[in-house]
Structures are given as structure tokens and as C-alpha cells.
Amino acid sequence: MARAVMYNNIRRAKSFLASSALALPLMAMAAPGARAEGMPQLDFGNPYVIGQVIWGAGIFLVLYLLLSRSALPKVEKVLSLRRQTIETDLGIAHKAKTRADEAVADLHAARRKALADAQANVDKVVEEARLAAARQTEEMNARLAAEISDAETRIAQARTQALASVREISTNTAETLINQLSGIAAPADFVTAKVGSAAAARGL
């Protein structure tokens, strides 16, 4: 079945090629009497040949006048209107752009100014805070110094008092020890003088 179809296709192809090969000779055979009897365009005896030139001149002239006076100026008018519109719109766009640029510049300037003001305010507040802190520290230091001074004074007084008692205690202790060790009551002046000299020798 498939072989039959193949043979059929080959036969068709052969007949097509054969017919194609015959095409040119057949074309030539089909027109054996192709002739050129002279060009009608060169028959200047024909009044229509010259007539078309005269008609053509008139038609061309009318066409030229209509185009140059009416049709082409219309196109030019539309084109110039478009050019003008585009130029006007471009001018407006340029102005709008300039205004926008100015607004942007103003915005930037305002932003910079606000930033500078804010920074100045921050610096001012920080400086004030710093000064307040310094003042507080000074006050605190002064208060502490005063308290320290008072405390030192009190300590000195306490020490003085304590040192003043040391002689009395030492005198009493020395009298008691003499009495306990020797059974003799030493004269109070003598003991006081000895304790006083001993204390002086030790810087008390």
C-alpha cells in the first residue's frame, strides 16, 4: 500500500517536471506571431498625441496653481501651527521646570536651614545641659568640700578633746599603777608633770 502511494507520488513528480521543462518551448510556441508594428507613442501624426501634451500642460498648470495657492499652504499652516504649539508647550514646560527647580532649591535651602537651626538648638540645649551639669557639679563639690571641712573640723575637735583626755587618763592610770605596784600614793602634781613631759616627748 505504502509502496503504491510512493510510486504514485514519483509519477506525479515526473509529470510535473516534464511539464515544467516543456514550459518555455510551449510559451514560445504559444506566441509565434508576437509583433511590434511601431510605437503608437511615436505616431506624431496622431492629433491625440499632441493633444495630450496641450491638455497635460493645462492640467499641470491648474494642478500647480491649486497646490501652490491652496493645498500646500494648508499643510504648511497645520505644520507651523504644530511647531508653534510644540514650541509654546515646550516654553510652558521649561517655565514649569524652572519653577519646579526653584521650588526644589527652596525646599533644599529650607531643609538645610531647618537642619542648621535644629543643630543649633541641639547644640544650645546640650551646652545648657552641660553648663547646668557643671554648675551642679560645682555646687556639689562646694557642698562636699564644706561638709568635708566641717567633718575635718569636727574630727580635729574630737581629736583635740581625745588628746586632752589622754593626759588625764594617763595621769589617772599612772597614779593607779604606782599605787597598785608600790602601795604609795604618788603626789598628783608629780605624776601630772611626768605624764605631761612623756606626752610632750611623744608629741601628744
Binding site: 504559444a30 506566441a31 509565434p32 506571431g33 508576437a34 509583433r35 511590434a36 508594428e37 511601431g38 510605437m39 503608437p40 507613442q41
Partner: peptide, 9 residues
């Protein structure tokens, strides 16, 4: 069986 190609002009 002839062609008049110039007749159109």
C-alpha cells in the same frame, strides 16, 4: 496567436 503589446499605448 499574436501579441500586440504596444496596442495598449
Amino acid at each position: 496567436s499574436s501579441i500586440d503589446a504596444l496596442g495598449q499605448f
